[in-house]
């Protein structure tokens, strides 16, 4: 465990040094992420200019939900996105060999190589959106609620990570499918919607089969309504199932990997 922590810290140090070397890039990417977040918030704002309620959620409840979803996504972008995005390219180009030769778990080595400080910076903006919404709603969560919220955000991060690993692992089978990573963003759109909006088949698919709704709704509900055992258990179960599936599929894919280099 300590061995992996040391490796991760070395990668983090390398990423920070690299960011300091390319300061304009850091600024530009921070702006890019900030702008995308603003676009999502603006959409909520525009919809609520024309209506008071979406599936029973008020404007600030919805902003709290979207803020929570963005927070999980910012952590994913900050901690894993660059490494996983490159993993897809490396599988196609044959550069994935490099990770197979390293002394450690392949998935860990391949998915923690790079950190993006710009994504992590914007997680503070997402936290600001959650805090502002909570303030406008007059919420005063206790310390335990906040700890539970943080734990659920962590579970959400693992679920998003697993979804991305699953998507990118497809590159082991579909080598010509470039840009397949983008499909993750399509699925993550669902996490900005309240559970009550899903009905019929959509409810079965996006609430029960895919973890895209529970990942944001469960933590948001802790702040809005306090501890709700059913949501906490649903999130924990989804975390275990999706992480196990992602590791299994990745390992099966890695076995198929035949390299492309000479």
């Amino acid at each position: 465990m300590m061995h992996y922590l040391k490796i991760w810290l070395a990668s983090a140090r390398y990423s920070v040094v690299r960011t300091l070397m390319f300061r304009f890039d850091f600024f530009l990417w921070a702006m890019v992420e900030l702008f995308w977040m603003s676009v999502n918030l603006l959409m909520i704002s525009v919809i609520y200019q024309h209506t008071d309620s979406v599936a029973g959620w008020s404007k600030y409840e919805m902003l709290l939900l979207v803020g929570t979803s963005l927070l999980v996504q910012r952590f994913l972008m900050g901690f894993f996105w660059s490494s996983l995005f490159e993993m897809g390219r490396n599988i196609r180009s044959g550069h994935f060999d490099f990770f197979l030769a390293q002394p450690g778990n392949i998935l860990f080595m391949a998915s923690t190589r790079k950190l993006d400080p710009d994504g992590l910076m914007n997680s503070f903006v997402a936290m600001g959106v959650v805090a502002y919404s909570a303030h406008r709603l007059g919420l005063h969560p206790g310390a335990l609620d906040l700890v539970l919220y943080a734990c659920m955000i962590f579970c959400g991060l693992i679920i998003h990570y697993s979804m991305l690993v699953l998507t990118i692992s497809l590159a082991f089978w579909l080598t010509s499918a470039q840009g397949i990573e983008g499909s993750y963003f399509t699925l993550s759109e669902f996490s900005r919607l309240p559970r009550e909006a899903f009905k019929g088949l959509a409810s079965v698919l996006f609430v029960w089969l895919l973890p895209v709704v529970v990942v944001s709704n469960a933590p948001a509900r802790v702040l809005l309504h306090g501890f709700q055992p059913a949501w906490v258990l649903a999130l924990l179960a989804a975390t275990v199932v999706w992480f196990t599936t992602a590791v299994f599929v990745f390992n099966r894919g890695a076995r198929r990997y035949a390299s492309a280099s000479s």
């Binding site: 919809i47 979406v54 919607l193 899903f198």
Partner: peptide, 10 residues
């Protein structure tokens, strides 16, 4: 889903 929920109210 999103716009359906919004139009349900307006």
């Amino acid at each position: 889903i999103l716009w359906g929920a919004a139009f349900a109210h307006s």
